[in-house]
Amino acid sequence: MTDTHAYDRTPEAEFGDYIALLKPRVMSLVVFTAFVGLWVAPVDIHPFVAFCSVLFIALGGGASGALNMWYDADIDAVMKRTQSRPIPSGRVQGGEALGVGLVLAGFAVMMLGLAANWFAAGFLAFTIFFYAVIYTMWLKRWTPQNIVIGGAAGAFPPMIGWACATGGISVESLLMFALIFFWTPPHFWALALFMKEDYHKAGVPMLTVTHGRETTRRHIFGYTLVLAPFAIWLGLTSVGGPIYMAVAVIANLLFIIGGWRVLRRSEDAAIADNYATERGVFKLSLYYLFAHFLALLIQSWVGGW
């Protein structure tokens, strides 16, 4: 009876562990932005086809999450925030995550092609490739611009949603992309300022580690300035309108002021109040993105300009 404890060494996962591989919280953002992109598009599609499209875009996002966890298991095991993920905690084997990721990616792309169109499906395939290969395998461990360029992966979903309805790309979908793309750096770097993680130990070249916290503060403020014109420009296109414009002006003013306050603070002051301003700006960035896409949704519902 010496083999009775063999199970304890390679524990079998339960169903929830595979769900955790798909990064449900990231998926919720993908679902929301993809749905808005699809909804505001000028072409009406059947509600069930729209539902399926958003579902398969989300599944594709989940698949890239699983591939990310497979490849990054070594980093995740080092950092406290990610130590309890399914692979570093030993609940799921790395190979299983790879298999789940590849199979789900294939299913998501094929089903999106059948449900919506093959342009959107190709776009989804490219997004999965971009996140899993370009960002995870290459940029993340190589350059402090990792999250800037990798942010494109998170910015594609509303474009895919738009492509599901229209079968193409337009200035509106490109501006929705720009909105998320330029929002990502200040969002992540605000987090990096107060989550003093062991990026250094894990070998991830985050800007806070490679160029220092002062530079990171300057970059945060700079990106809030770059972001604002794109948010306003989106309001001048066919998907914009008075409601969106009002939200965009207020949210961008608040975000720029937040970025300015982060810039002006010294590290000592930040430590003294446990990064209250940085935490506030991070929280504001979440509301910022949510408010913009919600405003687009409402604007499309009541009619634009």
Binding site: E14, F15, G16, H46, F48, L55, L114
Partner: peptide, 30 residues
């Protein structure tokens, strides 16, 4: 272990049933 294994089997079963229903409904719509 058996509880975890059952959770996996039931979960996968439900996913497959949902997938069948989804493809059927999508076919009807198309």
């Amino acid at each position: 272990l058996h509880r975890r294994r059952r959770s996996r089997n039931v979960g996968l079963g439900l996913v497959l049933v949902a997938f069948v229903a989804l493809v059927f409904a999508l076919t009807v719509v198309k």
